[in-house]
Amino acid sequence: MDKITTIIKKEWAEVFKNRMVIFTVAFLPVIMTILPLVILYTTRDTGSMGDLGNVTNEMPAQFSAFCSSNLNSGECFQVYIVSIFMLMFMIIPVAIPATISAYSIVGEKATHSLEPLLATPITTLELLIGKSLASAIPAVLATYMAFGVYALGAWIIIPNKFLLAALLDLRWFIAIFIVGPLIAVMAINFTIIVSSRVTDPRVAEQLSMVVIVPILAGFFGQMTGFFLINRRIITIIALVMIVLDAGLFYLAERLFQRETILTRWK
C-alpha cells in the first residue's frame, strides 16, 4: 500500500505541474456544471407558463414516463432540456483520467524514467493500480463535486420540489456515482493500451478521447429523440461498462508488463 501511495503522490506532484492537466481538471468540471445551471436559470420561468402545447409533443414519447402528473408541460420541458445536458457530466471522468494517464505513462516513457521505476521492488500490479488511481481519483472527485454543485444550484434555483426531484432523478445518481467511476476506469485502461503504441503524450491523450464518442452518441441520441436515458438504460450501461472494464483491464494489464514495456513500448 505504501508503494501505491508513493506512486499516487509522485504522479500528482508531477502531472499537476502541467498546465494542460490543471486546465482539464479544473476548467472542464466548471463548464459542465455551469451549463445545466444556466439552462435551469434561464428557463426557470418556463414552468409557470403552464401547458406549452406543441413543444412538449415534440419530446420523445418515453419521456412522458419522467413527466409526472405533478409537473406541467413547461416543467417537463425543463427536465427534458437539463436531461440532455446532464450527459455532459460524463465527459469529466473520461477527459481527466485520459489527460493525466497520458502524461503519466507516455511522459514517463518519453523521459526514460520508467525503466528505473520498474527496476524497484514494486510489483506490476502495484504500479498499475498506483497510476490508475492517480488518474481516477481526481476525475471521480471532480465529477462528484461538479454534480454536488449542480444539485445545490438546482435546489437554489428551483423552488418546486417535484421539479427538483425530477431533475435530480435516481438515474443521474446511478450515472454519476456508478457509471462515472466505471467510465474513468475505461478511459484509464484505454489510455494505457494507447500509450503502449505512441511516444507523445498529446497523441495518447487525443486517441484516448475516443472513449468520449459513446457519450456524445448518448448526448445526440437524447437530443434528437432517438432514445432517452432512463433508469433501465443507465443500469444496462453500468453492467455493460463492468464487462468492458474487465476486458480492457485484462488487456491493459497484459500490456503493462515489465518486459512488454521495456522491449515493445517504443
Partner: peptide, 30 residues
Amino acid sequence: RRTVGILTETPGMYDSLSAEYNLRIYASLY
C-alpha cells in the same frame, strides 16, 4: 530487485520534481 541497484543506460529523472523528491520517491519504493 530489492538487493541490486541499477543505473540504466538512459537514466531518466522526474524533471519537474526536485532532486531530493526524486530520491525520496525511490527511497520509499526500495
